[in-house]
Computed example of a mutant assay.
Amino acid sequence: MRAPMTMQGAQRLRAELEELKSVKRPAVINAIAEARAHGDLKENAEYHAAREQQGFIEGRIKQLEGEISHAEIIDVSKLDAGSRVVFGATVTLADVETDEEKRYQIVGDLEADIKQALIAVSSPLARALIGKHEGDAVTLDAPGGRREYEIVGVAYLG
């Protein structure tokens, strides 16, 4: 099964991939060459740090290439699910106790970023929301106890 991903998420990940390949990979290769020039590699902290960084960069490049190539890219603005919550929806929730409103977009696992209010489709909150409609109540067992939310808005923004 192909993992869903929004068009915006795919663009962000492609931009990260391009930066890793064109900026960070060459920089770490230069750092390794420079550290090698300093001589003995056994006790050369700069060399070992650069090699470790290179391993991280190459791993992330492989991960991004694999995820993007196997993703099903979805144009959220073309979805017409009405008031029903499906992948890609931007959902406004009101905490039943506090009336505090929060807004999240349901996105693919790799593009999720809670700081940007992007929640993974596989997260407990997203799983509780999928299939519900505007006006429905959702109960979630959170680490701080049981929370109840009302879905006050569902939008499909491009």
Rank of each mutant, 00 (worst) to 15 (best):
R127E: 12
R84Q: 11
V107T: 09
A94Y: 03
D80G: 05
G108S: 00
G135E: 15
E101K: 14
E97N: 13
A120E: 01
Q116P: 02
L118R: 15
E100M: 08
P143A: 15
G108Q: 03
A117L: 10
P124A: 13
L118Q: 14
A112V: 10
D99R: 13
S123N: 04
S122K: 07
Y104K: 05
I130N: 01
G144R: 11
A81R: 06
K132V: 05
E101R: 14
K78P: 01
H133F: 11
T92Y: 09
I68T: 00
H70K: 14
A120D: 04
V96D: 09
A120G: 05
K78V: 04
E100T: 07
A126N: 06
A142Y: 10
G131W: 07
G108M: 00
D75A: 06
G82Y: 09
A94T: 09
T98H: 09
A128S: 12
K115T: 12
T98A: 10
V107L: 05
K132A: 09
G145H: 07
V138H: 14
F87Y: 11
G144D: 15
G108L: 00
D136S: 13
A120Q: 02
A94H: 01
R103I: 07
E111T: 05
S123A: 07
A142Q: 06
L79V: 15
G145C: 07
S122D: 14
K132R: 15
A126K: 03
I106P: 05
I119R: 01
A120C: 02
D80A: 07
R127I: 10
S69N: 14
V76L: 11
A117N: 15
E134T: 13
A117S: 15
D141C: 03
R127T: 06
S83G: 09
G144T: 13
L118F: 12
G145T: 04
V85R: 12
D141I: 09
K115I: 08
E101D: 00
I114H: 10
S123Q: 03
P124L: 11
A89L: 08
S77Y: 06
V91E: 00
Q116M: 09
S123P: 02
I106Y: 01
V138C: 12
L129H: 09
Q105W: 02
S123M: 03
R84M: 13
T139Y: 07
S77C: 13
L79Y: 13
I119C: 02
D80R: 12
V96K: 06
S122M: 03
E101P: 03
D80I: 00
A89V: 08
G144E: 15
S122V: 10
S122G: 02
